[in-house]
């Protein structure tokens, strides 16, 4: 029986870009472009099955083997630290994890810094690395509002263009880490579907090199 590679793609514009890379690598699946409500798309001939997943869930699908490979943001990988292989930096979905605050913010080291974020682990390990005592305020969205309402002193969040920050009189004070989309693989699948995975890695690497030349 032919092996089928299960690929978790992030829903949205990033996922479409990623699919285009897989398609150019010879793993096309025309049914994915049809306008319908299907969630899973398969091309048995080339041995691939795609499914759209919420971007923050991709690492879970891959770590637990429901997907053999997937594409996840480095932010998610740093936050959840899944036990997976990180095979390629796709160089798309680029942004940065940053510390931002109101433009008149001055850090007072005498006081515990109040940090609002969706990314508690990233924030905690960043401030541990600079020996700063913090109070994490975990929020699930609209992080930018926290310093405006004095819920926090700073926020740790993803910054793409900085437009939202600027419109709310916030600015970036520190970049913690650059973020981009990464190709990840389940460790066990890498052993048992090695040929297919290596082929994809090789083809997409060639695309990335061509893009950088």
């Amino acid at each position: 029986m032919k092996k089928i590679l299960n690929v978790a793609l992030p829903k949205g514009r990033l996922g479409e870009k990623v699919y285009a890379m897989f398609e150019a690598a010879g793993f096309e699946c025309p049914s994915i472009k049809e306008q319908n409500r299907k969630l899973i798309f398969e091309n048995e001939e080339v041995g691939v099955r795609y499914f759209w997943v919420k971007p923050s869930d991709i690492a879970i699908y891959v770590e637990r083997g429901a997907a053999d490979i997937g594409v996840a943001g480095k932010d998610i990988l740093l936050e959840y630290n899944p036990d997976v292989y990180e095979l390629l930096d796709l160089g798309i979905g680029k942004c940065r994890m940053a510390v931002a605050a109101k433009s008149d913010f001055r850090d007072d080291p005498q006081r515990t810094l109040r940090v609002a974020t969706k990314f508690s682990n990233i924030a905690q390990s960043y401030y541990t690395s600079v020996d700063r005592d913090i109070d994490i305020i975990h929020l699930n969205g609209s992080i930018e509002i926290a310093p405006i309402l004095d819920l926090s002193d700073v926020i740790v969040d993803i910054v793409e263009t900085g437009k939202t920050l600027k419109e709310n009189d916030l600015e970036v004070f520190e970049t913690i880490v650059p973020i981009s989309a990464r190709l990840i693989a389940n460790k066990s699948s890498f052993k048992f579907k090695n040929e297919l995975i290596e082929k994809i890695v090789c083809e997409i690497s060639a695309q990335l090199e061509a893009r950088n030349d």
Binding site: G65, D83, Y85, K187, S188, K191
Partner: peptide
């Protein structure tokens, strides 16, 4: 298989290290 990504804590381990995988189980 030979795979140098098999790592163990170098504070405790030295020399040969190994991990076993079974098809259908997502971790070692």
């Amino acid at each position: 298989r030979i795979d140098f990504s098999v790592i163990s804590d170098i504070k405790y381990y030295n020399g040969i290290v190994f991990k076993g995988f079974i098809s259908g189980i997502p971790q070692s």
